[in-house]
């Protein structure tokens, strides 16, 4: 099973396995990743499941959706070209790394 490495704001890392196709936000919540808040439960409405997906992993995901694009402007920590809402992403079939912002609200 492929795994996700979460790079936490203090630089420490935590890895969890995830089935391909699993929702990344829900996987992070199940793994108790602090600062993935996901208040809206996955409707792309709250921007509190913001993650940074750097290359080469970014290319494993479909482009930013139109509603996701609007919502990323509300992310508490600055938006970058790597910004995604983890509720909109599903696990690819290989290992990935996600950087977690320090604040979500």
């Amino acid at each position: 099973m492929p795994s996700i490495t979460f790079v936490l704001p203090d630089g420490t890392e935590k890895s969890v396995e995830a089935d391909p196709g699993a929702n990344l936000m829900r996987t992070a919540l199940a793994a108790d990743i602090a600062s993935i808040v996901a208040e809206c439960g996955g409707a792309a409405m709250c921007a509190t499941c913001h993650v940074y997906v750097d290359e080469p992993y970014a290319a494993l995901f479909p482009p930013v959706g139109e509603v996701e694009d609007e919502m990323l402007d509300s992310a508490a920590e600055g938006r970058s070209t790597a910004s995604r809402l983890s509720c909109q992403l599903t696990m690819p079939d290989r290992n990935i790394t996600l950087r977690i912002p320090a604040s979500q609200q």
């Binding site: 996901a38 208040e39 439960g41 996955g42 409707a43 509603v67």
Partner: peptide, 13 residues
């Protein structure tokens, strides 16, 4: 959180 009071998915409130 995770309750569905606002619905969820593309039509989530």
């Amino acid at each position: 959180s995770g309750n569905l009071a606002f619905g969820t998915g593309i039509h989530g409130c």
